[in-house]
Amino acid sequence: MTAKRIVVVGGAHVDRRGRIFGDTRPGASNPGAWFEEAGGGGFNAARALSLLGHNVTMVSVAGGDPGAALVEAAAARTGVTLNGFTFLDRQTPSYTAVLEADGNLVIALADMALYDLMTARRLKVNWLRDTLANADFILSDANLPAETIATLAADARAHAIPMAAIGISPAKIVRLIPSLPALDFVFMNEAEARTLAGADCEARDWPKRFGERGLKGGAITRGMKPALLWRDGKTVTLAPPPVDTIGDVTGAGDAFAAGAIDAFLAGGRISVMIQQATALARITVQSPLAVAENVNRQLLSEMLALVPQAEMLD
């Protein structure tokens, strides 16, 4: 497909994961190992889209510390143009997680306060305003303040530029609520969807509930349970095929979003979007990294052949 100009505004930070080797012993020293890489929902999706051949610009905030250099190196490796705002007296945002031997989360600490400085008025800076106005697609994530997301979505709608957002977490996805009518898609996991839809809403009814709130389209990943993707009142579902070897599930949801966006930009139907999203997520979970840097069109095509057909829901 023809490369598109994609602008991603959102999280690009340091992602630290510690894995305990044996049984977890709370309140005690546990043998294990640390792993550090660049992360962030928006940045993970940005890198995947760049590896698929798109012209991607990532806009975020950074501190004057080694964390910023880590993000810059990850952008350079994957061909992403990294722009944004640097605060030399601050630390780059970070997410630090401790995992059990089987990958389940023990505890995590998100040091994300710097994203609060990505205010709506920064969208008016000339270089950023021009970058956004020339985009074919805009992607944000819920790491940003709600006002910033709403302003970005309103501007995208005014310029007839399609825009999507990634939910990030149950606590942060509520920041998207004011922007739902202006967004083309929201990508979320099951916990985020339950937060947004309300506990009284069954999974099958989530697309209808979100449609009532003005959201035209979206997708919900549910681990190994069937994912949902809908657009303009039509919903498809697809159960992901089993994976023999799991490297790390970190970044799988962001890869799902990238795969769906790529198919959307190629004019694909929602059935194609969910198939390609599933294929790219499957590649990602087999990698130890949040972004499988071996991603290319050929690998995606090979994985797509292993993904079953989507089922249309009534």
Score class of each variant (00 low, 15 high):
Asp205Pro: 12
Gly223Pro: 09
Asp155Ile: 02
Gly40Ser: 05
Gly167Tyr: 12
Gly218Ile: 06
Thr237Trp: 09
Lys208Cys: 02
Asp254Ile: 07
Ala193Glu: 14
Ala62Tyr: 08
Val7Ala: 12
Ala74Val: 03
Thr237Ala: 15
Arg231Ala: 14
Ala191Pro: 04
Ala281Trp: 00
Gly39Asn: 10
Val291Ala: 01
Ser301His: 09
Asn55Asp: 15
Asp130Tyr: 01
Ile20Gln: 00
Pro207Thr: 02
Lys172Asp: 10
Leu289Thr: 11
Lys172Pro: 01
Glu100Thr: 14
Asn30Trp: 11
Leu313Asn: 09
Asn296Ala: 00
Ile166Arg: 02
Phe185His: 06
Thr131Asp: 11
Arg282Lys: 06
Gly217Cys: 04
Ser169Thr: 14
Ser60Tyr: 03
Gly27Phe: 03
Thr284Trp: 03
Gly39Tyr: 05
Asp116Val: 00
Lys225Pro: 04
Arg282Gln: 14
Ala164Leu: 11
Val80Gly: 06
Arg231Cys: 14
Asp89Lys: 10
Arg121Gly: 03
Ala257Asn: 12
Gly253Ala: 04
Leu139Gln: 12
Ala101Leu: 03
Leu183Gln: 00
Ala164Asn: 11
Arg213Lys: 12
Glu302Arg: 07
Pro181Leu: 04
Ala153Cys: 10
Gly211Lys: 08
Val291Gln: 00
Glu147Gly: 04
Ile107Thr: 14
Ser60Lys: 09
Thr237Ser: 15
Phe210Asp: 01
Ala135Gly: 05
Leu313Ala: 07
Gly247Leu: 08
Val7Asn: 04
Ala46Tyr: 05
Met112Ser: 12
Pro93Arg: 00
Arg90His: 12
Val291Phe: 04
Pro66Lys: 08
Val285His: 02
Gly218Thr: 06
Gln91Tyr: 00
Ala12Asn: 01
Val106Trp: 03
Leu196Met: 13
Glu100Trp: 06
Thr78Ser: 15
Gln286Glu: 14
Asn189Arg: 08
Pro288Gln: 00
Leu144Met: 07
Thr81Ala: 14
Ala164Met: 13
Val7Trp: 07
Glu36Gln: 15
Pro181Asp: 01
Ala48Trp: 05
Gly22Gln: 08
Val272Phe: 02
Asp65Ala: 08
Val236Lys: 06
Ala182Thr: 05
Ser94Gln: 13
Ile246Thr: 08
Met312Arg: 08
Gln275His: 06
Ala263Ile: 11
Thr57Met: 12
Met1Gln: 06
Leu265Lys: 01
Ile283Arg: 11
